[in-house]
C-alpha cells in the first residue's frame, strides 16, 4: 500500500490534522475522517452537486478533490453555516419556503447559493436558476429552492 501523507486543514473554524491515503477524496476525509456527514455524496463523479463545499472562498465538489490537495486550506461545509443553534438567513429561508423535501441535495444547494449570493446580492430568478443548474434536486422541481434563495437575498440586503 502507498505511504500515508499528513494533511491539515481548517474546517468550519476547527483544525483537522490526519494521516491519509493519497487517493482519499476530500469528501471522504470530511465525512469519515472528521465525522461531518452533512456533506452528502450522490454520484461521486461531480454531477449531482450534493457534496459542494467552499474551499478558500470558492465552491468545489468534494468528491472530485483529493484530501491532500486541500492541505492547508480553509473550508466551510454546511455544518459551518449556522452560528451555534442559530441558522443563517439562507438556511432559514430554505426551511421557511419549503426549499427542501428529502433534504439530501440541500447542503450542496446551500453552499452553491452561499457563494452565489456573495457575488450577486440582488439576483433575478433566472440568475438563481442558472446558479443552481449544477445541483440536482429530484424532489422539489426547484421552484421552492429558487424562492428560498431570492428570499434570503432580500433578507441579507435588509
Amino acid at each position: 500500500m502507498s505511504d500515508k501523507l499528513t494533511v491539515s486543514m481548517t474546517i468550519n473554524g476547527h483544525t483537522y490534522t490526519a494521516d491519509c491515503e493519497p487517493r482519499l477524496t476530500l469528501a471522504d476525509f470530511i465525512r469519515h475522517g472528521c465525522g461531518l456527514t452533512g456533506t452528502h455524496l450522490g454520484c461521486e463523479q461531480g454531477v449531482c452537486g450534493a457534496c459542494t463545499i467552499i474551499v478558500d472562498g470558492r465552491t468545489v465538489r468534494a468528491c472530485l478533490v483529493l484530501a491532500v490537495q486541500a492541505d492547508g486550506s480553509t473550508i466551510t461545509t454546511v455544518e459551518g453555516l449556522a452560528r451555534g443553534d442559530e441558522l443563517n438567513p439562507l438556511q432559514e429561508a430554505f426551511w421557511a419556503n419549503h426549499g427542501l423535501q428529502c433534504g439530501f441535495c440541500t447542503p450542496g444547494m446551500l453552499m452553491s447559493a452561499t457563494e452565489f449570493l456573495k457575488a450577486n446580492p440582488e439576483p433575478t430568478a433566472e440568475e438563481v436558476r442558472e446558479c443552481l443548474s449544477g445541483n440536482l434536486c429530484r424532489c422539489t422541481g426547484y421552484d421552492s429552492i429558487v424562492k428560498s434563495v431570492l428570499d434570503a437575498a432580500q433578507k441579507l440586503r435588509a
Binding site: 456527514t37 452533512g38 456533506t39 461545509t77 454546511v78 455544518e79 430554505f94 426551511w95 433534504g103
Partner: peptide
C-alpha cells in the same frame, strides 16, 4: 407550518441511511 425535520436538514445534522 415549518416542517419538523427542517432544522436538521438545513444544518447538516440529519443522519441519512448512508451516514
Amino acid at each position: 407550518v415549518p416542517r419538523s425535520d427542517g432544522q436538521t436538514k438545513v444544518s447538516g445534522e440529519a443522519i441519512y441511511g448512508v451516514d
